[in-house]
């Protein structure tokens, strides 16, 4: 599962970002002066696209973990550390 998470991030870098880049690049038409609004807001939306993608992956993982590994889940089983009582506390 963690491999999948990494895979999604790599995909985000390789596929999503260049395509977003491409779309934004087409919006820029040659003008006498550069338009700081366009440049700065485009950067902002690009960063937000990535931030929300990564955010969806992170919070999705978090929500799934919280749902799957809750002790009331039908498939919940004692962790291997519970028998030996070795998961923290004074050693």
């Amino acid at each position: 599962m963690r491999n999948l998470l990494g895979l999604f991030l790599v995909l985000a870098i390789l596929v999503v970002i260049p395509s977003v880049d491409h779309v934004f690049a087409q919006a820029d038409e040659p003008a006498k002066y550069i338009d700081r609004r366009v440049l700065i807001w485009n950067l902002f939306f690009k960063l937000m696209t990535v931030a929300f993608t990564v955010g969806a992956v992170v919070s999705g993982t978090l929500i799934w973990i919280v749902w799957r590994f809750r002790e009331t889940h039908p498939q919940a089983k004692p962790t291997e550390y519970e028998k030996s009582d070795t998961w923290g506390g004074p050693a």
């Binding site: 963690r2 993982t61 973990i65 919280v66 590994f69 809750r70 002790e71 004692p78 962790t79």
Partner: peptide, 12 residues
């Protein structure tokens, strides 16, 4: 944090 919760038995 995420890896610690993974495969745990979480009491909320």
């Amino acid at each position: 944090f995420i890896a610690t919760m993974w495969n745990g038995r979480i009491k909320f």
